Amino acid sequence: MTRIALLASAAIFATLAPAAAQDLTPVTFGTNWLPQGEHGGYYQAIADGDYEACGLDVTIVPGGPQVNNRAMLLAGRIQFHMGGNLLQAFSAAEQDIPLKVVAAHFQKEPQILMSHPDEGFDTFESLKDATLFIGDPGFQSYYQWMIDQYGFEASQRQPYTFNPAPFIANKKSAQQGYVTSEPFAVEREGGFKPNIFLLADYGFDSYATTVETMADTVENSPEVVQCFVDASAKGWYKYMYGDNSAANALIQAANPDMTDEQLAFSHDSMMEFGILESGTAEADGIGAMTDEKFTSFHDKMVAAGVVPDGVDISDIYTLEFVNKGVGLDIKKELTGQ
């Protein structure tokens, strides 16, 4: 992240977010992509003052193609980072990097495959007969799990270049994507609603959109970590069930290419597929984590040859800050349920 980008991000929130009191602790949260609906809860917590209410002055630094906020975290330049799935955390454990996952706001990674309807590819198993457009990171991670668990073949895969045109043109193909994004693009550009197969529902059970920090932050500033985790959960409940227009305005100010239609599609998809609220999060609150799910996903990745065996992953996460039901009262108030 360049100094110019940091200053630009800070300027956005200086003008749009409430002025922070002098006694607030300044922290920076680096996301892993450009501002979008999938980040909505964090922007909602800024818009509603939830971070300030528990003592933090939070600046969000967007990620993007030329930005490596994870490196900024490891270098001590930012305090929190938005992880993708758990594979990078497992890599940190392998390299003895003192990183901690302190919350998982997505219980399901939004990763999907999608196919043309009524072309014989209406079940996950049937995709073993399709051409699959999958990028290199996906081929090296979840596709290896698909080979191991379901018998897919490496020869089916064609490189995905983040252009849906080849998939739209080939009715006997399937394409990777995020449930919150690519189906929207296909509907607009291809004129049809694709079949959607959320990999999490077939056993790729990684947490996603995690909150990462360094071990010394957990040890020396647990109140800061707890505030960030709790306020983020509150922000997510408000974004999903309340008036999210202020959060969306912040997102669009930071990313003018984000349309109202895309934001609405992302919101509705997260709701429909239980991205934030499924499993233990339904009772324990958004951000919930369990030892069992970390172990389950790790064992699957070892079996698929994605991560090496014999690495102790217990030190790269902590349950200290989650599973407390924070925000469930907000949901009840907003929904009446």
Rank of each mutant, 00 (worst) to 15 (best):
V27R: 05
A92V: 00
A169Q: 15
Y150V: 01
D129I: 02
T180F: 01
I78Q: 10
D216E: 04
A93H: 04
A281S: 15
M82R: 09
F228C: 07
P256T: 09
A233K: 11
L328P: 12
F273M: 03
T209V: 12
E119V: 13
E212L: 11
D96V: 01
M1T: 12
A174G: 13
P308L: 05
A47D: 05
D216R: 09
M1G: 12
L334T: 14
V102S: 10
N248W: 05
G327Q: 05
E187I: 08
E119C: 07
G190T: 13
V307S: 00
P164D: 10
A130D: 11
Q144E: 09
E292H: 01
A254F: 07
G203K: 01
E189C: 02
A103K: 09
P98Q: 07
S269Y: 02
F294S: 00
F273Y: 15
P26I: 08
P35T: 09
Q262S: 09
G191Y: 06
S206N: 15
G191H: 11
G274H: 09
L24E: 12
I316K: 00
A247S: 14
M258C: 04
G235Q: 10
A75H: 06
E212R: 08
Y178G: 15
A93C: 13
V322T: 09
P65N: 08
Y317N: 03
E94N: 08
M214H: 10
E261H: 02
Q88L: 03
K172T: 06
K300H: 02
S91P: 00
F167L: 02
A281V: 01
A246N: 11
V211Q: 04
L16S: 11
W33I: 03
T280E: 14
V322A: 01
A249R: 14
A253M: 13
Q337C: 00
R188I: 12
